[in-house]
């Protein structure tokens, strides 16, 4: 599965366009981590707990994106975009979407 934020693949041609595929994930950290992050934020600097949380969440969303693309027999996803919205304090929704296509090498 090729995943790219570009609109085309150099050296390859799009043979079929299969429509939009998407993946999302909502996560929140457990209370302990939230309290620690709250304390840490007084002093400023990176909140590693939240960075990890959002990174994992994004990985999961991408995993779901790939699953959906596989189920419609795509072999590439073009023009991938991320979007984040915070739903409540400490919980965020990660949304990722792109165009599922079938590509083949240019002969």
């Amino acid at each position: 599965m090729i995943i790219t934020s570009l609109e085309y693949l150099p050296g390859m041609t799009v043979q079929r366009h299969l429509g939009l595929v998407q993946g999302s994930s909502v996560r929140s950290k457990h209370a302990g981590r939230d309290i620690m992050a709250g304390l840490k934020s007084i002093f400023g600097g990176e909140l590693v707990g939240y960075t990890e949380l959002l990174h994992e969440s994004r990985e999961e969303a991408v995993e779901r994106l790939i699953q959906q693309a596989k189920s419609i027999e795509a072999n590439a996803i073009l023009n991938v975009r991320f979007s984040t919205s915070s739903i409540a304090s400490g919980a965020a929704e990660i949304f990722v979407y792109g165009a599922a296509v079938q590509v083949a090498n240019e002969s």
């Binding site: 570009l6 934020s41 600097g45 994004r58």
Partner: peptide, 27 residues
Amino acid sequence: SKHPPTGEKFRQVLVVGNVVVASDYFK
């Protein structure tokens, strides 16, 4: 740019970087 050089073959990989930073209480 959205347009990589054509004519050459590339393998494309999505790269992602994120960071959460807090200001501090004083700021």
